[in-house]
Amino acid sequence: ENVVSAPMPGKVLRVLVRVGDRVRVGQGLLVLEAMKMENEIPSPRDGVVKRILVKEGEIVDTGQPLIELG
Score class of each variant (00 low, 15 high):
Glu68Gly: 00
Gln64Ile: 09
Arg51Pro: 11
Val17Met: 09
Gly28Val: 10
Glu1Lys: 00
Ala34Thr: 09
Val15His: 05
Pro42Asp: 05
Leu32Thr: 09
Pro65Thr: 04
Glu68Phe: 02
Asp61Met: 08
Met8Trp: 15
Val60Lys: 02
Glu40Ala: 08
Arg18Pro: 08
Arg14Ser: 08
Arg22Trp: 06
Val3Gly: 15
Leu53Thr: 09
Pro9Gln: 13
Met35Gln: 09
Arg51Met: 15
Val15Lys: 04
Arg14Cys: 01
Leu16Asp: 11
Ile67Met: 14
Arg14Pro: 12
Asp46Ala: 03
Val17Tyr: 15
Val54Trp: 03
Glu38Ile: 12
Glu38Thr: 10
Val48Trp: 03
Glu38Cys: 01
Leu29Arg: 00
Arg45Ala: 15
Leu32Gly: 03
Glu56Lys: 02
Asn39Thr: 09
Lys11Asn: 08
Pro44Lys: 11
Leu29Asn: 04
Gly10Trp: 08
Arg51Ser: 14
Val25Pro: 15
Leu53Glu: 15
Val48Gly: 07
Asn2Thr: 14
Met37Gly: 05
Ala6Lys: 02
Val49Asp: 00
Leu66Phe: 02
Asp46Asn: 08
Lys50Met: 12
Val19Lys: 10
Lys55Pro: 09
Leu30Ser: 05
Lys36Ala: 08
Val60Trp: 03
Lys50Val: 14
Val25Arg: 08
Lys55Leu: 15
Lys11Phe: 11
Val31Thr: 12
Lys50Gln: 10
Pro44Gln: 15
Gly28Ser: 11
Gln64Cys: 01
Leu16Val: 03
Gly70Met: 02
Met37Ile: 06
Glu56Ala: 04
Gly47Ser: 08
Gln27Gly: 07
Leu66Ile: 03
Glu58Thr: 09
Gly47Ala: 14
Met35Thr: 10
Gly63His: 13
Asp61Val: 08
Leu16Tyr: 05
Arg22Gln: 07
Ser5Trp: 02
Ser5Glu: 08
Pro44Met: 15
Ala34Ser: 10
Pro44Asp: 15
Leu29Pro: 00
Lys50Cys: 02
Arg18Trp: 05
Gly57Asp: 08
Glu68Tyr: 00
Glu38Pro: 09
Leu13Cys: 01
Leu13Lys: 13
Pro44Ser: 15
Ile67Leu: 11
Leu30Tyr: 05
Glu40Leu: 04
Pro65Trp: 11
Met37Ala: 06
Leu13Gly: 11
Gln27Ala: 04
Glu38Phe: 10
Gly26Val: 12
Val60Asn: 03
Arg22His: 04
Arg24Ile: 04
Gly20Asn: 05
Met8Glu: 09
Val4Cys: 01
Met35Phe: 11
Leu29Gln: 10
Gly63Ala: 10
Gly57Pro: 04
Val4Gln: 08
Gln64His: 14
Gly28Trp: 07
Arg51Asp: 14
Asn39Val: 09
Glu1Leu: 00
Asn39Phe: 14
Leu30Phe: 02
Val15Ile: 11
Leu13Trp: 06
Asp46Cys: 01
Ile59Trp: 11
Ser5Lys: 03
Leu53Val: 02
Pro7Arg: 03
Val19Trp: 04
Pro65Phe: 09
Pro9Asn: 04
Met8Phe: 05
Leu66Gln: 03
Val49Cys: 01
Arg14Phe: 07
Met35Asp: 03
Val49His: 02
Glu1Met: 00
Lys55Ser: 05
Leu53Ile: 07
Gly28Thr: 12
Gly10Gln: 15
Arg51Tyr: 15
Lys36His: 07
Glu68Arg: 00
Glu38Leu: 14
Leu30Gln: 04
Lys11Trp: 10
Val31Ile: 07
Gly26Glu: 11
Gly28Glu: 09
Val19Gly: 11
Val49Gln: 03
Gln64Tyr: 06
Ser43Tyr: 05
Val54Leu: 10
Val60Ser: 08
